[in-house]
Write a protein that binds this DNA or RNA. Structure first.
Lengths: 219, 219
DNA sequence: CGGATTCCATACACTTGTGTACTGAGTTGC
DNA sequence: GCAACTCAGTACACAAGTGTATGGAATCCG
């Protein structure tokens, strides 16, 4: 197992069977994980093949089995990195609230933030979820992320809801609708605007609940 | 290719290498498709292997390649049967409305009817959706079913909505929340009741719209 | 400079899966 | 009865993928 890393990872040009060229920096584990993300985005975790990653990186599997013990470890490390990044982006949003954005609008941007624009990240998200249906460890990872996200949405919805329990229900509704939108929209790529209208409807719904409050809620 | 079938399909006892026993009825294509459904429910379309189906049915692959030309045909026939059944159950619900059920309640039972109780069918549904993200034909199949379902929900929501366009938006919201609930709940099997509360919230929302339009139409 | 270390290439053994050609037992129809 | 058809078993060729053992070039470090 590698212990230290000295240079930044670099994509190497795919020399057919050339020995490591001196100017090429060595591959980092993160480079393998990035390539894994590409394969997963394309075809899910069943498409995660060491052979394909090596070809994509322009090396042979000999490199892989130096950085990783086996295929299973690749899966585990990918899942953990994915979880850590999702949790980190949540923490960032919690620490840096955008004052120019309404509370409700912010919620949607939060739930699946980048994925809305980053198609690859969205596909990875769905692939992880799909994998979690048959892998116990992935299920735990997804549960952690889901719990954190819903918790965060619920915190933002405390003003809107009557009590804490209702805030959690509302948060779950928002989360579920967002996830569902991602899933269904893959079948309906033609009306990309539908998700916008749905967001609008939910905002309207939430706004009607906080009718008593002077809502600075809607932007 | 087979042309006619005389007897009902029967599960045969898994004799190790036994020739076809006379009392065993021949396998129908539907038997293979049912077995395929099991494999898909367990591990998605990537888990659809002829070898495994044959073992499950207690025969060898020789039988499969008589009923089907190849693996691809199995996939196509499975998808088409799946679509036909979904459309048929929709048509049945449209033709036989339950007068004891409220319009709104009926909607949820309609969208993903059996899957709510039939775990296997729900997993197949999600697997088909996942496969549709990388297979063009499956995407078409899913789009057909989605369109029919949303259309149906929208028809039931015409009283509630202001105009036809809004009925479609509301229907999409309901559909998306339901699908999303199925996806997220696989990660949260512990609170099965959450989907119930979400349904309740949406019903409340829809009810508030039909009650009167005094409340806020938020921009 | 010269070993030790890092990183990757190569070759081999093994497994699992597809598709095809051929065979052959049962059944049906005439 | 007997040929023809139905259906499944068997064997072979082929492909793709994993893991391991080993060698070897670069590089680092003292």
């Amino acid at each position: 197992m590698p212990k230290t890393r000295r240079k930044a990872p670099t994509r190497r040009k795919a020399g057919p069977a050339a020995r490591r060229a001196p100017e090429q920096a060595p591959l980092s584990p993160d480079a393998w994980l990035d390539a894994a993300g590409g394969a997963i985005a394309e075809g899910g975790f069943d498409n995660l093949r060491v052979l394909a990653l090596a070809k994509r990186l322009g090396v042979t599997r000999g490199s892989f089995y130096w950085h990783f013990s086996d295929h299973a470890e690749l899966v585990v490390r990918f899942l953990e990195r994915w979880r850590d990044r999702r949790l980190a982006e949540l923490a960032y949003l919690a620490a840096n609230p955008d004052p120019n954005e309404s509370e409700l609008r912010k919620i949607f941007r939060l739930v699946l933030r980048e994925p809305a624009r980053n198609a690859r990240q969205m596909r990875v998200e769905l692939a992880v979820r799909e994998f979690a249906r048959r892998d116990a460890y992935a299920a735990r990872i997804v549960a952690e992320v889901d719990r954190a996200r819903i918790e965060h949405v619920a915190r933002l919805l405390r003003h809107v809801a009557a009590d804490e329990a209702q805030a959690r229900d509302l948060a779950l509704l928002v989360y579920v609708a967002t996830i569902g939108g991602r899933v269904v929209l893959t079948a309906f790529p033609e009306d990309e605007s539908a998700i916008e209208r749905i967001e609008q409807l939910i905002i309207e719904f939430l706004g009607s609940r906080s009718a008593g409050r002077a809502d600075s809620a809607v932007a």
